[in-house]
Simulated assay, not measured.
Amino acid sequence: MESPHGAAVRAEDFGLKGPRGWAFRHVGFSAEPGALVAIEGPSGTGRTCLLLALTGRMRTTEGHAETGGLRLPRQAAAVRRIAALGPVPMVSELDPAFTVAEHLGERALLQGRYGTSPRALLRPRAERRATAEARVEAALEAAGLDPATLPKAGRTSVRDLERLEALRLSVALALIGRPRLLAVDDTDLKLSDAERAQAWGLLRSVAEAGTTVLAVCSEAPQNTQVVRTAPATGDTAAQEPTTEEETADAFAEAGRA
């Protein structure tokens, strides 16, 4: 799959304080374009918040970062245009009632309407359809997902997918827009050792093709750049939400910060 040049990512004394305390603080690292970066730490240590902050989806309160040369949080809107989310609970989840084909068709339609230039919209419908189909095919190939191998091919419901298949579908949907940065949450959640190796192999192949990848995990594989999060202590203790309602409230608060 032909990928645009990946986005370099850098952070210095990066931190986010919400209504429940510090989600993360004192984060600093530098990653070159096309790198695979594992954000490693126990659940509840700000991993997802850091992932969303680096992709322009959460506004931080301390320090600064750059994604693709765009400064955060000031240029968050511009970062969102070059950074795509894979699976992130409460933010970019797959709809279990949708089929694989419906998800792919919807994403291709949105990309054709809002992710392309005005000149491209003036092209003949058949040409636009062919372009969309080519993008979907390339994204599926990059994600290692062949709908024909699923129980009901493209008509397979998301609820019937295995965890690794769902991860591949989420990555494919993100890659349709040809982002410079791909962000994936809970990479190793509920995967066997063999499946975990396949998941990291997938993300490594995406990075090797030129797209920078940030992946949240509980344990990073060897030979991977790692950014570690850890529980805060004392007055600045992180108090991350534990329910879906609290998660949504925390994301909303961070967005208004």
Rank of each mutant, 00 (worst) to 15 (best):
H64V: 04
E102V: 07
P73T: 02
R107T: 15
R129K: 11
G68Q: 02
R163A: 10
G69C: 04
L161T: 11
A76I: 01
S157K: 15
E141N: 15
A166V: 07
L85G: 01
A108I: 04
A138W: 09
A134N: 04
L110H: 11
Q111F: 11
L140P: 13
G112P: 00
G68H: 00
Y114M: 00
E133L: 14
R119V: 12
A65W: 08
K152C: 05
A143T: 07
P151R: 14
D95Y: 09
G86C: 06
P147D: 10
E137P: 00
S92K: 02
A132N: 08
P87I: 02
A83E: 01
A166I: 05
Q111Y: 13
P124I: 09
A138M: 09
L70F: 01
L140W: 12
L164F: 07
G105L: 07
L169F: 09
F98W: 15
A83V: 03
T116Y: 06
R107M: 15
K152D: 13
A77F: 11
A77M: 08
A130L: 13
R71I: 04
A78G: 03
L110Y: 13
V79T: 03
G144R: 08
V136H: 07
R128W: 10
L161C: 12
A142V: 14
I82L: 14
Q75K: 10
E66W: 08
L150I: 12
R81Q: 13
P151A: 13
R74A: 15
L94V: 01
A166H: 09
A78S: 12
L121H: 08
H103R: 09
